[in-house]
Design a binder for these strands. Structure first.
Ligand code: FES
Ligand code: FES
Lengths: 145, 145
DNA sequence: TCAATAAAGGACTTTATTGTCTTTTATTAA
DNA sequence: TTAATAAAAGACAATAAAGTCCTTTATTGA
């Protein structure tokens, strides 16, 4: 019933944290990111690596290196992070574990879940990271408690 | 991103299967249930045991024994099964892993997720097992593929 | 060129979930 | 009262998710 995996949680928070930096080319190191989002350092390293491979963030090795957003790019959304980490299928598998989720041979939850999924996809696809990070900067919302 | 745990999936399907039986006192054995919902026999046994302990279904030992619904009871809903298996908290924990989910110190997803959760709770709380099992009997929906 | 730095990569451990197997307990019917 | 049956209970095994640690590679600046 948990919405996101831990991996996804940290990924979302890490990207949000990066977006709170005004300078999109400021290199942020793993220790700082992990500290600011309260996540395990080495595990976070792995996740940042993946996000970088998927092109959602950039990275620079060596002294003064770290992770950063990079040049102006089209808006990304929570959904993009989820897709990058969990894969696109995760939102389309049958809630009751049938091999294929389809309206022609639906499980007892199919149509109801479909509506719900649509709502979730809508939600995750409409929350732009820039907007959310602004809310963090203005202390409307928080990355840690 | 998966909605239910495997345990929950099997629990829901097992209870639905029991409700498809017209005779609420007909004792259904573990092998039949596991076969009909395509679940691992021993694992299913454990889950049925738990459902029985929680009072969602009844059980009878010995020859001719098995699981059954029992005397007329107030309608149960998918949500009741989820609560019995995963606990009631599972729908209230912070989506981004903050210790406490609260509107006074919300995470970036809090308010949006809140709406979503309300929708899910509504959905799961409005799907009565009786109704769903009728749809199974009329081949509108299926427990296996 | 060399030492320091920081991410990339890979092997590994821990923990939780899923699943199996065996023994015990209760019930039935001969 | 006994043998057969079926769930209850608990120990165990396999797999996946989460997390750690160590080595390698790339980059920088002295
Ligand atoms: S068939 Fe189960 S959710 Fe679509
Ligand atoms: S604080 Fe994160 S969902 Fe409520």
């Amino acid at each position: 019933m948990e919405i996101f995996s831990k991996t996804c949680e940290y990924a979302i928070k890490a990207v949000l944290y990066l977006y709170t930096k005004q300078d999109r080319f400021a290199k942020i190191g793993i220790p700082e990111i992990a500290r600011e989002i309260k996540s395990p350092v080495s595990f976070t390293a792995k996740i940042l690596q993946k996000l970088s491979q998927r092109g959602l963030i950039r990275s620079a090795k060596g002294p003064g290196g770290g992770f950063y957003i990079g040049r102006k790019r089209k808006s990304i959304f929570i959904l993009d992070i989820v897709n990058a980490i969990d894969g696109k299928e995760s939102l389309n598998t049958c809630a009751l574990g049938l091999k294929n989720c389809s309206s022609s041979r639906p499980c007892p939850m199919h149509f109801e879940i479909l509506d719900c999924r649509k709502a979730i996809r809508n939600l995750l696809g409409s929350q732009s990271i820039e907007e959310l990070s602004k809310k963090i900067l203005s202390n409307e919302v928080y990355l840690v408690n």
